[in-house]
Structure formats: C-alpha cells, structure tokens
C-alpha cells in the first residue's frame, strides 16, 4: 500500500475527486454556479501566474489585460463574426502570449521591478483604451448579449458549462503540474535559482523566461474566455487591476510546491472576497493579511505543510523514491 502511494502521483485523482465534490455542492444553485465559474476563472489565472512566477521567478502584472484579451476575443468573435466561439479562445491566448513576450523582451536585461512596473502600466493603459474605444470594444458599457457557446452541436447552458469548466481547469492543472515536474519545469526552476549556471550550460535564460511568460499569459487568458462564455458579457471593469494582486497571492497562499496550490489559492480568494457575507468589504483585507503572514512565517503555503504532514504518515522507503525515477 505504502509502495503504491509513493509510486504514483496521486494528485490528479485526488484533485478530480475534490472537483467532483465541489460540483455536487454547486448543484443547481445559481449563486453557487456563479461562484464556481469565478473560481474557474481565477484558477486559470493563478495557473497562468504559476508558470512564470513560481517556476521561473518572472513576475508579470499584466494579467488583468490577459484576462481581458481572452474575454474580449470571445465576445468579439461571438458578436461580430460567424466563426465558432472557440476561435476566440485561441485568438485571446495568442494575443496574450505575444503581449507578454513583447513586454518581457523590453525588460529582459533589467531587474524584475521593471517588468512589474511596465506590465502594470500596460494594464492601466489598456483599461483606459477599452473605455475610450466604443466602436471596437463597446466602451465603458462593454459587450453584452454574447450568445451561448455550442460545443459539438450542444448549446452550453450554465448547467452544462459547469462540468466543462471543471474538466478544463482540472486538465490544465494536470498539464501545468506535469510541466513543473518535467525537463522544462526543471530548467525553469534552475533558472530561477541559479540563472548563471543555466546560462553557462547553454540554455539562454532570457529566452526561457519569455517562453514561460508567454505560456502563462496564454493560460490566464483562457480564464477570461471562460468567464465571458459563462456570463455572456464583459466590460472594462470586469477584471479590475486589483485582481492581479490576488492572482499573485494565490500560489503563495495555496503553496508553491505544486500547481494545485495555485488552484487552492484561487478557491480561497473566491471564498474570502465574494462568499463571506459577514466580513463584507474587509474580506480582501483579511486575505491580504493572511498572505503576508504566509510570506513572512509560513513560506511553504497550505499544500506545502499538508505535504509535510503526508510524508509523516507515508514515509519514503528509500532515497530512490524521492524524485521521479528519471
């Protein structure tokens, strides 16, 4: 039994089970469905943040713009073209990746503070731009009346779209976690901690970071796309700037050691900022305090400590099991 537990990575199974339990909780309660869709959006956002930020140590803050790219791409494709709506997902992801690479390229030789500054400035300018272009983006009112998506000939009602969201988020969670453990994630983690060594080994660290930034942006933009697919509308205020700070905190709070930590963090954010009626306005404040505490005294995050607990219960048999056996 112990051998079995250590041999296979159980996280996909465990997380799918947790997801299904969540699905049961959602049921046909419309408020819960809204929460679930938001949690899915935030999860994709957090997974997108996870790749460059946690794995590669590159912090981009234009994530609200990536969400908006994904969202507007879907809304525009659905209302202005007769292409299938899924095209919007790809367009948004590609545009986000390109933008992330361009902003990253401009600051590739500078300290990470510069990337943070330029990406925040972009996010601000982009929000302003959306408001000031009514012909294109619907201006401050945004784009409403987005038709429901059709998937394999089936119209995606809210109820039907919820399980699709679960599968999508879970699938991308599995992929991101595999990315972390595979060769690419390994090199990213090395480039975060010892960039000179990775450079000296022949892999260009700036290029590596740009690829990570582009991939992360594309994943996050999917979050915007699913949000619009579910809610059928978007405007410049849908993803306000402070969401990017929440996105930064999600993997920290959930735990950086696996991609699932990012998703856990996203769920906690939704709980704190939208579902805690009693604390009202101060939910975000409480959440931020929690993050700062984690940062200062509990840097492994929730899953990190759960992992330690798990190792106590199911110790490794031999050194060999410590990592995937190549």
């Amino acid at each position: 039994m112990r051998k079995l537990l250590n041999r296979y990575d159980l996280s996909p199974v465990l997380t799918l089970a947790a997801g299904l339990a969540l699905l049961a909780w959602v049921g046909d309660n419309p408020f819960n469905q809204d929460l679930f869709a938001l949690a899915a959006t935030y999860s994709l956002l957090a997974l997108g943040m996870y790749i460059p930020f946690v794995l590669a140590g590159s912090l981009s803050m234009a994530y609200t713009a990536y969400l908006a790219f994904g969202g507007y791409a879907v809304a525009l494709v659905a209302t202005r073209t007769d292409w299938p709506m899924v095209a919007g997902y790809f367009i948004g992801a590609a545009a986000s990746a390109v933008l992330a690479v361009v902003l990253g390229f401009a600051t590739r030789r500078l300290s990470s503070f510069f990337l943070v500054a330029v990406t925040l400035l972009f996010a601000i300018a982009f929000e302003g731009w959306l408001t000031s272009t009514p012909e294109f983006s619907g201006g401050a009112a945004g784009i409403g009346g987005v038709p429901r998506m059709e998937l394999f000939g089936v119209e995606m009602t809210r109820e039907l779209f919820i399980p699709v969201l679960l599968v999508l988020v879970w699938g991308i969670g599995v992929l991101v976690d595999r990315l972390r453990k595979g060769v690419f994630g390994m090199v990213l983690r090395a480039s975060r901690d010892v960039p000179v060594a990775v450079e000296a080994s022949g892999v260009a660290v700036p290029t590596l970071r740009l690829v990570a930034l582009g991939t992360g942006a594309a994943v996050a933009s999917l979050g915007g796309s699913v949000f619009v697919t579910f809610n059928q509308a978007i405007n410049p205020e849908t993803f306000i700037l402070h969401v990017v700070f929440l996105a930064l905190f999600m993997p920290l709070l959930g735990g950086q050691s696996t991609a699932w930590g990012a998703i856990l963090g996203a769920l906690i954010v939704v709980q704190f900022t939208f579902n805690l009626g009693s604390v009202g306005d101060s939910g975000t404040l409480l959440f931020t305090i929690a993050v700062l505490v984690v940062l200062l005294i509990a840097p492994r995050g929730i899953l990190g400590y759960l992992g330690i607990l798990w190792r106590r219960l199911v110790p490794l048999e031999s050194e060999k099991e410590r990592t995937h056996g190549a």
Binding site: F245, L248, T288, L292
Partner: peptide, 14 residues
C-alpha cells in the same frame, strides 16, 4: 530579489 519584490507588492496592496 523576487521575495523582496513580492513582499513589497503585498505591502502595497495591504
């Protein structure tokens, strides 16, 4: 650098 940056960002938001 990154932890300091993140801590400062968290302080900003806090």
């Amino acid at each position: 650098e990154l932890p300091a940056l993140v801590a400062v960002a968290a302080t900003l938001f806090l």
